[in-house]
């Protein structure tokens, strides 16, 4: 749980730093692409960030809405991809 929270915090910080939109109302279940928080460059940069920061490799088959639509979804995706990030 502790680590999931840490991942979420890192994602919040990353998105706030890298969007050009207002993020005051950003929550963990905000639909970040539907709401236009991240655009296509934002998506590509997010994938770079996830791969570098959380030591995962996003396969083409992973690139579906369910894995990236919100901070909650990305957190779940990261913990599935790299189980070492989650407390045993």
């Amino acid at each position: 749980m502790e680590n999931k929270r840490k991942i979420q915090d890192e994602l919040f910080a990353y998105i706030k730093e890298n969007t050009f939109k207002e993020t005051e109302s950003l929550t963990s279940d905000t639909m970040i692409f539907t709401e236009g928080i991240l655009d296509s460059m934002g998506f590509a940069l997010l994938l770079d960030f996830l791969e570098q920061n959380f030591k995962i490799t996003a396969e083409d088959s992973d690139l579906v809405e369910e894995n990236f639509e919100s901070i909650d979804a990305i957190t779940e995706y990261i913990t599935r991809k790299n189980s070492s990030l989650v407390e045993k």
Partner: peptide, 12 residues
Amino acid sequence: HEGSGSKLPPLF
């Protein structure tokens, strides 16, 4: 685009 119904932006 990842699937015709995807809300994700396209990638290069």
